[in-house]
Amino acid sequence: MAQELLSLQGLRIDGRRQNELRQIQCRLGVLERCDGSAYMLHGNTKVIASISGPKHPTKNSANKNRGGDEFIFNVRVKFATFSKNGERQKVVKNSKKLGEIEINLKNIFKSVILVEKYEKSQLDLNIEILQTDGSEICTVVNAATLALIDAGICMKEYICACTASLTNDGVALLDVSHLEEICGGPTLTIAALPRTGDHEQSVAYVELSQKFYLKDLNKIFDCALMGCEKIRGILDEAIRSNAFELVNSELTNN
C-alpha cells in the first residue's frame, strides 16, 4: 500500500494521533425482551449484545452437555448481511471464522464469570454485528461485558479489549480501523482485566496477525493495554450513569 499509516505531522489516515481511540458510545439496557443488553458504537463499528438467562437449560443444550450440573454458556455471533462495506453478504452459518470467535469469547468470559454461582443453569449471549470498521472482536468483547453487567451476572472484573498496530518505522498505533487493517501492518487484539490500584493487569486473550520484530512486542503490548485502561474508564462511566438513573428512581421507595 502506498499510503503511510502515520503522516509526517504525526496524524493517521482518519486524523487521529498515534495513541488516540476512536469515539466510543455505549448504552445499557436497550432491548426490552431479554435479561440484559448493550449497544456499542466504536468508531463506525456497531454491535448489539444481548443476554438471556441464567435460566433452566433447554433440552437441546442439556443433551449436549451430558455431564449434568455444569454451567452452560452459549455464545452466538452474527454478522448482519449489510454489515460489511459494499454489497450484501451471503449469510454463512457455522463458518470457521465465526466458530473461532465464539469459542474465544466463551473462554474469555468463562474466566471472569463466577461460574460456581450458576451451576445447572444456562446463559446465552447473542451478538449481532451491524456494521464493521475494524476491531470487531474488541467491540464485541466490550459490548458483551456491558450486557453481562446489565443482566446482573456475577463477575470478578470488567473485561475490556483493545487493538494496536505498528507502522513501518516501529511506532505503535492504538485502536486500528478497517482502513489501517488492510493497509498492512500487524494487528494485536488484547482482552484484559484492567485493575486500577496495585494489581497488575491480567490478560485473558491475545491475538496477533502477521510477523514483526520481537523488540517491538513490548511497545505494541503496552499500547494496547493502555487502550484497555482507557476503555475501562469509558465503560465504567456508562455503567455508573446507568446505575444512578435506576437507583434514583427505583430504590427510593424500597
Binding site: R27, E157, D236, I239, R240, E245, N248
Partner: peptide, 25 residues
C-alpha cells in the same frame, strides 16, 4: 434509534446512594 432511546427516569429526590461496580473493593 437505539442510541437515542429516551431515558424515562428523572431525578426527583436527592439521593446519594453509593454504587459499587464489578471488581470494586
Amino acid at each position: 434509534l437505539l442510541m437515542n432511546k429516551a431515558k424515562y427516569t428523572s431525578d426527583l429526590g436527592e439521593n446519594n446512594c453509593r454504587i459499587y461496580t464489578t471488581g470494586e473493593v
